[in-house]
Write a protein that binds this DNA or RNA. Structure first.
Lengths: 214, 214, 214, 214
DNA sequence: GATGAATGAGTATTCATTCAT
DNA sequence: GATGAATGAATACTCATTCAT
């Protein structure tokens, strides 16, 4: 049993790495067992199906992220930094992402989507705690905390995941987050230094500036 | 030529409906040609590949949405209502969505994602125009318009698409949109009547309220 | 493992027979598995692709021929007969050839060509040994042995493979082979009795005897 | 009719070039009509089938070669040079061959084979005339002329077509041709200067030198 | 002479899953 | 616990050919 557990964990790691690097759809059971050096029957001894494996892989991933988030939550750093730290830790680490940041490659969308969804689910209550903490300390001031936290997470995910955001995106994100949580203007400016815009502002917009209507 | 065009349009419609109702991945070429009552060769006479068909289907869909959006843009209704109208028209109409609202079913994720992405791309410049109009009229007040518009769209998509939002989500969305664009508090309250929350507030949160840490 | 090997050999035999009798291009995977009574997956469990199967089939064939050739090489028969024996054994046995002798039917050309090429490659070093032996014994006398052997093989293949050669072709072949290897005039005459010309001399030429020029 | 003929000739030229450059099997009717800028129906107005087109293409090619050969035959140059000239002209010009000399690529084998066969058929009677001429002049001395000529052609084709022959191959070829036709030793040495071996002698043989038997 | 829409049989390959040993 | 042989449904795409206009 102990041995079996270890084996399963091992397989999970392999599946994880392969799903991440080549996409779920592009990874066949054969790929996995080849890499693991086991027989096909063995794989099916440990997993019911490929989909169940994906589920398990995601669960494992989530647990890791959440663990990190909780340790931040329980630490003694200031509330504002907790928010940022947890939000960051909740996002799949860059090195875990498919190469070339090709999250949009169809073969990766499904897994990516599932992960994001689960992470938001898990993170909302955690961050809500932090916001409540902040309200007690007078740093934040707002109602409907979980809903606000959820929107903040969505914005963060959708804006920064693709890796093609600009300084302006960061500016707006900071502004809106402060207002979302009722924080002091500029109190979250420090985020700016933590996020490096890979694309200088103004480039993206040029081509979008189309003349419309009359 | 006329005849060929009609035929192609017909096939596009069929593909569209099938992709929408059973998902792109779950629709085989055979399904499409059976439905259309044509030979396989005929299908490939009009489309290069299945993927290209998806692209064409999405393009068709987008064009429809954008057309509607532009007619709103060019109309004489108040700026605030333009914003809401365009934002709504930009979202795939509910009846166009896969049955059971199962946008999250893996087989639909890819198409859904592609559509959302293209719609945002197309809508940002349109809405930016409206916001500028609003600024001139003193209704809005903000900088970095395209970035703000983009975030508003993302929030709108992610919040209302799933069909499982609450009144609180609506409240927060209104609050944040007003702040995002620098609108008067409560000036966008009227949205509330246009969006009906399918899930009463407070239900979702119960299960998320987990005890954490020590 | 033993079992798998047997199965593979079995499939190889079936593929071999089918490729030979109806041509590689005209044999579909479905034909093969129908004949073998196995599922498609099973076929692909043993072979990577149709082309790889062809490769394997040819390899098997070659090995058989070469084995026969080597046993002749190692025997004690006179050098002249070794040459003839190996040259003959190196040629695909008539019963192995596509029915109707239709080697020229396009569907067979590819395989036929590949086989000939590989056989020549394999046979040249073998026959070179024999020629060296013959030189030591004073039966042959020549330089550039591998090149000469290769040409002899080509001539033999191209002349006798089609199955439409005449007595005169045999005469010329004998003459030229003797000269090629520096053998005594008439020392290889005995070949004549081993090769039966299916077409009496003089028939082919009639139609070719065209008046040319002015 | 005149116009139709021109059109057909035009199509033939296109088909010819495409078959040559990408192989018969790899050239689809669609490729041809795209290149020609005509409709599919038009193609079938001029040709019965793809195979018939190949036949016509080859016929056209052969005619060109034979024409050149005949003009050499009728000229006043010495017999030995006629032999060489015709033999060379009979071989598909290098620039007509598939790129990269990949005659062995399966997609080209069929056409290549057909061409070689037809060329030999056509060339044998021509060269036989020359050899007879040579016999009258005392330059050659042999019987069974067509058979000898045929073998010479085969040897020439098989040896020099691949483009990977050595100086030794040339030496042996000269030696054997002289003996085949009963020419004076060294009388054909001049060929050597006309053929440039792309591969220095001795390289190929190394790897073939395998130890065999006991 | 010319068009181009329509055909449909044909083909190789993939892959998650099962199960007897 | 572990194996690996066997399965077979599923699928996208090709292409020479026909024929009504």
């Amino acid at each position: 049993m102990r041995k079996g557990e270890r084996r399963k964990r091992e397989l999970l790691d392999i599946a994880y790495r392969m799903f991440i690097s080549r996409g779920y759809e592009n990874t066949s059971i054969d790929d996995i067992i080849d890499e693991a050096g086991i027989a096909k029957g063995t794989y099916y001894y440990y997993f019911e199906s490929k989909e169940q494996t994906l589920e398990a892989v995601i669960e494992m991933m989530i647990e890791n992220e959440i663990e990190a988030a909780i340790s931040i939550l329980d630490s003694n750093i200031p509330v504002l930094q907790k928010i940022v730290g947890i939000t960051a830790s909740i996002r799949p680490a860059p090195e875990e992402l498919p190469i070339e940041g090709a999250l949009m490659r169809p073969e990766n969308i499904i897994m990516h989507q599932k992960i994001k969804q689960r992470l938001v689910e898990k993170a909302v209550p955690l961050l809500s705690k932090v916001v409540e903490e902040g309200i007690e300390q007078g740093v934040f001031s707002c109602d409907n905390i979980p809903e606000r936290v959820r929107m903040m997470l969505i914005l963060s995910n959708e804006t920064f995941d693709e890796g093609s955001f600009t300084d302006r995106d960061v500016d707006v994100f900071i502004d809106i987050t402060e207002k979302l949580l009722g924080a002091q203007k500029h109190s979250m400016d420090f985020i700016r230094h933590l996020i490096v815009a890979p694309v200088p502002s103004g480039i993206e917009n040029t081509e979008i500036d189309i003349e419309i209507g009359g």
